[in-house]
Nucleic acid binder design. Structure first.
Lengths: 223, 223
DNA sequence: TAAGATTGGTTCAACATTGGATCAGATAAA
DNA sequence: TTTATCTGATCCAATGTTGAACCAATCTTA
């Protein structure tokens, strides 16, 4: 039997693919170019690429080219779409992970102006006479803590979480879970966080924030 | 996806948008001007801008022009745009926050199948003979740890981080920072993480992961 | 208010690139 | 010899880019 040149070319291609070649845009050269490069007829290259196509390494599109399948996992839009389906429990878990850390960062990194902004949000929330107003300044308090933390990515993750929590299923939840009594608890806990921030105490801010979020979780999820 | 001049132009435009260009009035230049500037037909620019419109980066009005939605900082598109500009230092900070926690979650939540998948990625990475192949399985290792953690939001955040790290400035960085010696260090550290996971030891997994990320940070940022 | 300029929206024909398919002939192994 | 493979060539179909023209909404200016 003649040795299968196409097979050799296929394995060479696979090696080059797994070695990261063509990974920037996930696109292989045109078959005609590969044929020239390997010094082989285009038919042979087509057969080799056909093998790669068979085992799913590659997809081909007429008029566009041949593309690696390994390189296009997901678009950012689809990630965000999936995030929008996050469950309240998962969300609370992440909040308890991120917000204490953000508070600790804030204690070390914040400028005086930024801390004053946090305090202002806290004050306004405490003075708020109506529930929606309190809610707004409550959220603003948390937001301003993140604003202090000097890590843009972290800030944006928080923005994402906020955007998701502002969607309808969460809205219902909040309404059910608020009361005047709880409002006062939240104010006291915010106060504790704020004091740790002003004392530039990262650990204190962290634990105060974590404690607060435990309260929120209990109220929200009834645990 | 496919190689498209329009695609390249879209990413160039996105980059310029997120770098703050056109932010004063939130208005992009006319398509005809952009076409001239890029030395490309107007149709092609229209297609590129169409991509931006699809993912909500931009809105178009006949007779008025094309406008950034990012002027509204609460839009999800603008958050993502800002995330894309995250600095390597910020990114490492967040990785050190999230990945140890993910490893701890994984130690308690993962199924045996999931853990085996992690081990498989580790093995393949260790056996890899070429650097790009190692890199791929290195990334896959971290990804599979997140896959174990049973928190969808956290998983998606990691996907976001990965997508950002796959963009060009990071690409250069990785290339500079790898060597055979470092590869072996990484393998040992991954091994430690893996063992903690299989021992169902959350704290151990957490500290092992944190230690590993400290190494990565040192290599990447030269600290 | 009316006229003209600017700008995005749409369509079209022409060309280039690329994978898909086929065929006749040469080559090499069984 | 027989058979599978490779070659070189040709044509097809799908896609992307170009350049152009015209439309419709909007803004500017007289």
């Amino acid at each position: 039997m003649p040795k299968l040149v196409a097979n050799d070319i296929a394995t060479m291609l696979k090696k080059r693919i797994s070695s990261g070649e063509w990974l920037e845009d996930g696109r292989m050269p045109p078959e005609r170019d590969l044929a020239a490069e390997f010094g082989v007829a285009r038919n042979t290259v087509r057969r080799a690429v056909g093998f790669l196509e068979d085992d799913g390494t590659v997809v081909r599109h007429v008029g566009r080219g041949t593309f690696l399948t390994a390189t296009n996992p997901t678009s950012i839009a689809s990630m965000v779409a999936r995030m929008e389906g996050t469950s309240p429990a998962d969300m609370m878990e992440i909040r308890q992970l991120l917000e204490p850390a953000a508070a600790a960062f804030a204690a070390t990194n914040a400028s005086a102006t930024e801390l004053n902004a946090v305090r202002e949000a806290h004050q306004t929330a405490c003075d708020a006479m109506e529930m929606p107003e309190f809610e707004h300044w409550d959220a603003e308090f948390h937001h301003r803590v993140f604003a202090c933390c000097r890590n843009d990515f972290l800030k944006e993750i928080h923005n994402l979480m906020r955007a998701i929590r502002n969607q309808s299923p969460w809205f219902e939840m909040k309404k059910r879970s608020f009361s005047e009594e709880r409002r006062q608890v939240y104010c006291r806990e915010h106060q504790a966080i704020l004091e740790a921030l002003f004392h530039r105490d990262p650990e204190g801010a962290k634990t105060a924030m974590l404690g607060h979020l435990k309260t929120v979780e209990k109220n929200l999820l009834g645990r």
